[in-house]
Amino acid sequence: MDDTRSHYDRLAATYNANWEYSEEYLAWMTDTIAKHLDVAGADTLLDIGGGTGIYSARLRRLMSPPARVFCLDPSQAMLGQAPEGVEAVPAAADDAVRALAERGVPQVDRMLLKEVVHHFEDPAATLGRLSTALGPGGRLVIALLPPTLDYPLFRAAHEVFEARQPHYDDIAETLRSAHLQVSVAHEAFELEIPVATYVDMVRDRYMSLLSAFGDTELATGVREMEAAAPESGVYRFADRFVFVTGSRDG
């Protein structure tokens, strides 16, 4: 966890720029999360590993006042950028239940875990604990990347990703074991990113998996990417997500 925290502390200053891609992408992702999470009827939302609050703030605008939105993240540097109105919670996912209780919130209506489960040492145990903070009629959404990526990374990066990424079927089974009603949906957004921009993002290790590579290894990977880059100078690829939803009976 310390390595993960250090990674995001280092990226905090450039995190939004690296992950926002475009206003169209942000709008699509927000709308897709909101659809699966059904935020309109919720009074409380917990964004686990929410970083700088990119989506916490946007989802809050879709909820009726005085809804409370909590952005939980172990990185103080990330949470320091959380927008006004989003309640920053400096804690790891395993401490979420305690952190909420300290704020007088024993349970929440909605819970979002976007691209975070691969950081859990024991996903089944952590998700089991988090499910106890989901109130009657509550809904939990886990947005994760599929087992293989379309991203134009170098070969070794793809191999590391595939070795580490939890499978959505296992996540779905974990939620069923927590006595939640489960559904699985696949969504995608077509991205266009200039090669130079994306290569700079890779050099900056914008994905946590890139921290697995030393400077020399990363430079070798970047050269591999540049050698295979399209002549158009633009990467075009699908950003694919799997949305696993767990709902509790009211």
Results as ranks from 00 to 15, higher is better:
Leu72Met: 08
Leu149Arg: 14
Leu112Gln: 12
Leu130Thr: 03
Met63Leu: 09
Asp122Glu: 11
Pro66Asp: 12
Pro166His: 14
Ala93Pro: 05
Asp170Ala: 15
Ser131Trp: 07
Pro106Ser: 06
Leu72Asn: 07
Leu79Gln: 02
Asp94Arg: 11
Gly80Gln: 07
Ala77Ile: 01
His119Gln: 10
Pro152Ile: 10
Glu159Tyr: 14
Pro66Arg: 11
Tyr168Asn: 04
Leu100Asn: 08
Ala156Lys: 00
Tyr151Thr: 05
Leu140Trp: 00
Leu140Ser: 01
Gly85Asp: 03
Leu62Met: 07
Pro65His: 02
Ala77Gln: 03
Pro90Glu: 13
Pro136Arg: 13
Asp169Val: 07
Leu100Trp: 10
Gly137Gln: 01
Val89Ser: 00
Ile171Arg: 10
Leu144Lys: 03
His119Trp: 08
Val97His: 04
Arg68Pro: 11
Ala96Ile: 02
Leu72Val: 06
Ala88Thr: 02
Leu112Tyr: 10
Val141Lys: 01
Leu127Ile: 10
Arg164Cys: 05
Lys114Met: 13
Arg98Gly: 08
Val108Trp: 09
Gln107Pro: 01
Ala124Arg: 09
Gln81Asp: 06
Asp109Gly: 06
Leu79His: 04
Val97Lys: 05
Arg164Glu: 05
His167Phe: 08
Pro66Gly: 12
Gln76Gly: 15
Ala124Gln: 05
Glu102Pro: 05
Val160Ser: 03
Gln76Glu: 11
Asp150Phe: 11
Ser177Val: 04
Ile171Tyr: 13
Pro65Met: 03
Gln76Lys: 05
Arg103Ser: 06
Ala156Pro: 02
Pro83Thr: 02
Gln165Val: 13
Ala96Glu: 00
Val89Gly: 04
Pro147Cys: 09
Glu162Ile: 12
